[in-house]
Design a protein around this nucleic acid. Structure first.
Lengths: 253, 253
DNA sequence: CGGTCTGTTGACACTAGTCAAGTGTCGTGG
DNA sequence: CCACGACACTTGACTAGTGTCAACAGACCG
């Protein structure tokens, strides 16, 4: 199931450093603080519950590789996925205010994460105002992403919702990868996709077929290639939240 | 439309102080920093747009009185309300990361807010680690609230969604008011309610009638009284996010 | 080889949307 | 004081988009 190792990470460029420095220059103190968060790595396999719902004082995680998601399952079996995380993301900011975690964290594929306790944030807040501001901004961006999802589920048709989901993933993957990429290697099943955007697996299947027949999409195994990105953006009224981060209000370094 | 005054706020207990000190003891430095955020008050009337979508370097607001909401209107007229704010809430944290604001901010009734610029956060981050942590935790709680809304729109029936919405408001109002209150004086129209939970005004009307006929609810003008709170919580699988805030990870004072 | 999981497709049901008519309230202006 | 329009809400008839159910195909694995 899972395995913990204590390998140093100094030989590889830290995924969290890469992700955070995308937005802001990090000084030596920032780097040391971030490194402290990533000193432990844990592996999970597809379907593993990384952290169950209602965990007390839940951990935070920096994602090193793979996809994972936060989900909530009702007593009657209905499941809602509220957020999908990719390498470089910080997981768990949304539960910081809660004594018990609000979601299951589930590995969507094979995953490597670096868990760290909430107390790991205290030294950052005390000694690194700019890094604190960056984490604050990332928490804010998570909110913007949630609001976009609310709009998608509340306002868009089934086909539009699926297109929206694919665009969200593409723009996120472009942030830490090739900025003109059009292909997504997606480890999630159609049932999981449906649980994310409020549809059944059947509707997802039909929507993907429709997108394909209308020329927006090419499929091959679990690889999805978007063919008409700009048009899809227009149809779904998609807004990219990953491209830029406003840092003008941050404290001076 | 709107009116700005420069009255001191020292004579009345600040709504923001009241709301923040509900969770954490504030020291003199904290109080001075918060006071600086509330030095200006602005009034708006029902329907006024407090701040339009795509505003550059959007302001933050502390809500003094009244309800307001964040909404997004599509070109084809569909509108999604993503969040409703009440007195004591901090508005705008979700747009901190964005150069242009993602939502319209609209007054749901007559409203008094204290606007302050994003730069107002910098001195807090630099000199008040515990207050920074509290704001961070509030941003996290906003996320938890968004995730609950996503679940409601994605998983619940029309009647359940309306019940969920009423419970959310009730628990929020209990936080800064009477903790056993069961009555909500709601300034929002049924169309606005529908835009919040992904329904039409017609469905909201029918759902409210159903809740009333099943004994969950009593209505009188725009006053709503919940009669079977515990049962409604069970039916909608509602989780209260307002009761407690985990402060155990905060830096030492 | 059989079992499990994922995805596809078709028939049908049902929830919520759409449309429309009508009521009640409020504010304005004659 | 009443007439009028604007707006919020209610109710019923009908429609349409997804959900539900079921059968089946293909991939993978023990």
């Amino acid at each position: 199931m899972s395995e913990t190792d204590t390998l140093g990470i100094h030989d590889v460029e830290s995924c969290l450093v890469q992700s955070l420095s995308y937005y802001m220059a990090l000084d030596d103190n920032d780097l040391r603080l971030i490194e402290a968060l990533e000193k432990e790595q844990t592996h999970f396999a597809r379907g593993d519950v990384i952290q169950p719902c209602r965990t007390a004082r839940s951990s935070l995680y920096a994602v090193t590789s793979g996809w994972l998601y936060a989900s909530l399952t009702d007593a009657d079996g209905r499941r809602q996925i509220t957020r999908v995380f990719h390498p470089g993301d910080v997981v768990g900011l949304s539960d910081l205010s809660l004594g018990l975690s609000s979601c299951d964290l589930v590995a969507a594929g094979d995953v490597v994460v670096c868990p760290f306790p909430r107390q790991g944030l205290a030294p950052i807040l005390e000694t690194a105002p700019r890094l604190s501001a960056l984490l604050f901004a990332l928490s804010a961006r998570d909110q913007a992403i949630h609001m976009d999802l609310i709009r998608a589920i509340g306002c868009l048709s089934a086909v539009e919702r699926v297109g929206f989901m694919l665009l969200t993933w593409l723009m996120r993957l472009r942030m830490t990868g090739d900025p003109v990429e059009t292909t997504i290697r997606c480890p999630m099943t159609q049932t999981e996709m449906g649980d994310l955007i409020g549809l059944t697996n059947v509707s997802v299947s039909k929507a993907l077929s429709t997108l394909e027949s209308e020329g927006y999409l090419k499929r091959d195994a679990n690889t999805l290639t978007l063919l008409e990105v700009d048009e899809l953006i227009a149809v779904t009224r998609f807004e990219d939240r990953y491209g830029e981060l406003d840092t003008t209000w941050f404290p001076e370094s």
